[in-house]
Write a protein that binds this DNA or RNA. Sequence first.
DNA 1: AGCACGCCGACT
DNA 2: GTCGGCGTGCTC
Length: 733
Amino acid sequence: MLILEVAVPRPLHERLDYLPPADGTLDNVVGRRIRVPLGKSKTVGVALGVKEGSNIPSQRLRQAEEWVDNEPLLDAELVKTLTWASQYYRYPIGEVLSSALPGVLRRGGKVQRGEVWWRLDEQLLGDATAVRRAPRQAELRERLLAAGGAARYADLVTECAAWQRAGRELERRGLLHRERRRTSNMHEQPPASSAPPTLLDAQLQAVEQINAARGFQVFLLDGVTGSGKTEVYIRAAEQAINNGRQVLFLMPEIGLAPQLLRRVKERLGDSVAVLHSDLPDVERAQAWLAARDADVAVVLGTRSAVFAPLPRAGLIIVDEEHDPALTQQDGFRYSARDLAVLRARYLGVPIVLGSATPSLESLNNVASGRYRQLALPQRTGSAKSPSIQVIDIRSRPLKGGLSAPLQQALGRHLEAGQQVMLFLNRRGYAPVLTCHACGWIAECQRCDARLTVHRRAGNMRCHHCGASRPLPSVCPGCGAGDLLPLGPGTERLEEALAELFPQYNLLRIDRDTTRRRGELEARLAAAHRGDAQLLIGTQMLAKGHHLPGLTLVAVVDVDQGLFGTDFRATERLAQLVVQVAGRAGRGDNPGEVLLQTRHPEHPLLQTLLESGYGAFAAEHLNERRAAGLPPFASLALLRAEAVDANAPYVFLEAAADWGASLTRRQQYGVELLGPVPAPMERREGRYRAQLMLRSESRYMLQAFLGDWAIKLAGLNGARKVRWSLDVDPVDTV
DNA sequence: AGCACGCCGACT
DNA sequence: GTCGGCGTGCTC
């Protein structure tokens, strides 16, 4: 008797066996969605195989209801990749499949293919009398005429929101028609644009090597900021597309997409699907299906786009490969970069990992010969590398966090008509509020953290749980006055700069000023136009933005990252400093970078400034080797949290005991470290602890996890905590 | 994850 | 006597 193996969206590590549905054959079942009964309800699963007979007693077997798809939605490669990911990250296969599929498809829905277009009725083509008295409608008609009579609805309403009503009105009068068009323009030639830039030698060589690759090969494109990595990606993509192949382009943040998207469309044509998790459900499904049907040549997206189907794959690109945002941090925890490499292998295509500050993992893979390095050591055009200097702020008076030398430098660049950027990874007005009289400090009730003062909003907020309280007017500790905000935040920085340089325009870019949709893009565009001379920002300003007028970049407080608890803290800081510095001097004028610190002699700063990121990385790799840390060892982290302070330990002790008994039975060479409290023990009212697993061998760690992880859910106390297992954790916090 | 089953406390 | 608390187990 033939049995169907189905992965259902439940936290089950096994597939479930079903009798085949009454309808249809059993050819080509893998990757097809199927409606099945489950417990009292029904659900949609994905068929993963057919087999003869089942271990489940036949009276307990239930019959699958019906196929959702006539042909596989997920192709063999994607099923293989997802199955591997489920095994490696120890996450239930059904949930892994769920996270790969856009919501609509996951729920068994079908999506209308193609996009909505608006087409002018013939009556309106040559004759404008019908819209004579309606300026919006006339405008829309002009726009559509210019596009040859029809355009994408989505493009039109983003261009001008008022056209939505105008169009509806025309539609009502039968002067405009709504229709669906499938993209199907995979080989449409891009519009002839301005001549592509001439490549530097190093860029040319990189492109040639990528284009010469036959089959799977990993390239690490190690290019200093401003060295033209994007141009290399585009040239390599161009060749893949010309060969009728698809390109997957991953980047850490969708905030970087608009600039890139424009460039990609300009050079590679309109055949691009954008795929990220903020997209409305239906659009996501359409983009996903467009990739699956090879209607698009380029799939551009954030980490979840690594699960886009690529039936005609030719090349994968991962930009900013070092960026932790490429790693999913909750639920199904995976590294999009690592899975992209796996997919490239399964698909037999080259993959390019690009960064100005490659991860130590990737550099080590270059050293061991697994990856091939493509170096771009020079900036393009006339841009020179910026000079980097440290300002020792010990015993210097600070105004809003700014030392006198920094203030002078700011004045100098501003007077020369240039832009300056101040980088401070701390939103709000001040990170601490204290009482001058009694030493009281504003703390979060639910986390081991201080409350940040947000002066403009008139409250104090916890940046870890989001709790908010009004700013007290007198000290809640002693009832006296004197409440003092300590330390700088971006809001305070803004205040100080407005006072110091009132004649210049200021633009602050952090999560507080860019909460609304499109606000980040708007502010970046304003920065680009030069509307503001002073730019203030957090982390989000550090990445990839090209601002030609910017000549001075200052890191207000480098020390924040210097003594982090995580073993990757120094790597992160080095990457941050180099990336931030890379924003300066990308036009014709040389850039200057200033770092304020209380530890000018810190070896990280010394190495980084004197010898650069490469030397830092080499040195740091040696330290990692000596300490037995990744990439010279593999880690997994079991986390647990609960309202009851003891509950995490009950569970983690049980897990550690179970692990120890396993290692006694068989020599896995896996060390169990802990349980220990998490670096911020209490968060959102829950106590958190963790158990670290370490092994010299990834293979042995995997073998161990195979035996160990499967039983975690059944351990003593497992149901009293929230727990999660993180394989290859990006941070141990 | 849902959902039911099951076994002990305070209510119409 | 029952309503409901959430601990435990199962989903083919």
